[in-house]
Structure formats: structure tokens, C-alpha cells
Amino acid sequence: MTREEVFKALDEVFEEVFDDASIHVGETTTAKDIEDWDSLEHINLVVAIEKRFSMKFTMGEVTTMKNVGEMVDIILERAQ
């Protein structure tokens, strides 16, 4: 997958998790930028992303990823 494809797929995941069709995520998007993205939704998001890309984040990554860009790096490393 290319980086753009990953971002496009992520848009869909975010839209589904947050029930908001207008979300577009970028390299530097963080939880502060999306209203409902709190600590509880964070884990739902992670699980949804794992399912979508058939990969797993480590527990350490779950709590230390700083923005969507870092998420994409990890996805590209591990996605099949």
C-alpha cells in the first residue's frame, strides 16, 4: 500500500468510529483535533484500525503514538 492509500483507508475508519463523514486525517492529526477522540475512543480506534489493516499495534505503541503520521508508519511496516 502507498502512504496515500493508507490515509484514505484511515479516513473511512475514523468516519465509522466517530460517526462523522467529514473527518480527514493528516500526518500531524492528534486527539486534540477531533472532538470525541478521548481515551476511551482511542482504544476503539486502535482496535478498528487493527482489524482494517489486519495488523497489531503493541501495547507500548498504543500509549506512545503521538499522531496519525506515526500510526501510518507502523501500519506500513506491518500491514499485509
Partner: peptide, 15 residues
């Protein structure tokens, strides 16, 4: 949150 809840929610069983 970090050491109890997240590991539970992310575990295969829960998913």
C-alpha cells in the same frame, strides 16, 4: 487505564 483497561480492550478475547 494504561495497564488494565487498554490491555483488556485490546485483547483478542474482547475484540
Amino acid at each position: 487505564k494504561d495497564y488494565v483497561m487498554y490491555p483488556i480492550l485490546k485483547s483478542n478475547h474482547f475484540v
